[in-house]
Simulated scan of single mutants.
Amino acid sequence: MRVSSYRKNIPLLYAVEWFSFFGITTFWVLFLSQKGMSLLEIGLLESIFHGTSLLSEIPSGMLADRFSYKANLILGRLAAIVSSMLMLLAQGNFWLYALAMVVNAWAYNFDSGTSSAMLYDSAVDAGLKERYLTFSSIISGVTEATMSLGAVLAGFFVHGYLEVTYLMMIACSLCAICLIALLKEPDRKTYTEERVSFSSIVNTVLKEFKTNSALLWWFLIGQIVCATMCMFYFYYQNHLPDLSSWQIAFLMLVGSGLNIGAAYVASQVGKKWSSFQLFPWIVGLTGLLYTAVVANQVLVFMFIYLLSNALYALYMPIISNDIQQYLPNSIRATMLSINAMFFSLSMIVLFPLTGWCIERLGFTPTFLALGSILVLSAFLLVFFLAGIQRKLTKN
């Protein structure tokens, strides 16, 4: 009966993911612009989001390890509701938008690492550990689908009705909270939560990185490269207003199909090759796609946008599965939060730096340079990751 309860967690987590990450507020940059925010102010708000995320990642993961996964997930959805309300109430007030970004970062932090840690522990307690990669690929597919389909729907509200998207996000978050309440806390989590203190979590994390420095380097280098691979996704959105609403919706719909397909393929590819073997290829192919900007054609830009996103979607479930195997149960959420923290740190530096380069050099030269860097990085990663894998296996 207990095993059956943990089995039910898996489809419930899929549903929670659907409502938690429904991409209806995808066009928040356009929303802020329509409310009178300048591009500089919007850039500052993005930095506030990532700065808050950087500072809050580890504490949020520690809360999940110290108390419960369910509590963290509920706090994340409550933060999403508050953030959406602030976005609606601000009406052009920069500081209220800044507060909304802070709270929105907390919504992300409380979920980051927690849902994947709960999925892994639920699979273990249900006797389905060997199927975790499949579950992780499915939940990645759900995430890609819900974000993309939400973006498709949001495309029909871009002409003055984006406030509706935040009301829809509030409704989705309330649905997610109801589903989270039905989850059963994993057995291993319930067993340890009374005896694990914050200080022991910190000590365990420090000891883990001291004795296993390869894990730290894997987190750091991997997230810097992943952040670089996301730059086209963010900055191409500045070109979306050149398309009509139906073209934007169609682009998002095609992207959704590709990303869902990539997540499915990941469950098959990940059984044959590890992330250590695949990552250099993913990075190299993304770099080659970036260099295609030299064509300076609308259709080529759309092609790069779709395929670079699909490659990223293919890689995420595989790296998630590999990382889980090297993490201690007692600090699983904390370690995953540290990994996500490195992504935020990378974004704080790379996002404004890329924007500055685009303003100074232009869109095409900037991504031609980034593509060249990624291609070179792919060759270096072959040797770096081989050494990391040997050290992790040895430890």
Rank of each mutant, 00 (worst) to 15 (best):
V265K: 13
S122Y: 04
Y305T: 09
A333Q: 10
Y315F: 15
L251P: 12
I304S: 01
S275C: 09
M231V: 10
I138M: 15
F383Q: 05
Y235V: 01
F384A: 10
M335C: 04
I319K: 15
T134I: 15
N395F: 04
L99I: 06
A266E: 08
T291G: 08
I138K: 15
A126M: 11
Q34L: 07
L278W: 10
A123H: 09
L220G: 03
K184N: 07
I373G: 00
G284S: 01
T146S: 13
G257R: 13
R77F: 00
S372V: 06
L368G: 11
A214S: 14
L314A: 08
Q237Y: 03
I248K: 15
L370H: 00
E17K: 15
Y191T: 09
V225E: 10
K129V: 04
D322L: 02
E208Q: 13
T114D: 07
Y236H: 12
L289W: 02
V16F: 08
S199T: 08
N212Y: 06
I304M: 06
L253V: 06
F250I: 06
I170M: 15
Q389C: 04
L167D: 00
A310V: 14
A64P: 02
L174R: 09
A266W: 07
Q34F: 01
K272R: 11
W217K: 12
S56G: 14
E193Q: 13
F279D: 00
V152M: 08
E208F: 09
V196S: 07
Y236W: 09
F156K: 01
A378V: 02
L55G: 06
W28D: 09
A310R: 13
Y290T: 11
T190E: 12
K271T: 02
S112I: 08
L370E: 01
E359L: 03
G261S: 06
G387E: 00
F67I: 11
P352S: 06
A123I: 04
E130N: 14
Y120K: 14
A98I: 03
F219Y: 12
S337M: 12
A181G: 00
G127I: 10
T286S: 13
S200E: 11
L182E: 03
A181Q: 09
H159M: 05
F22N: 07
G387C: 00
S53F: 09
S137Q: 05
A369C: 03
R195M: 04
I282E: 03
S68P: 01
L99Q: 07
T25L: 06
L89F: 14
C175R: 10
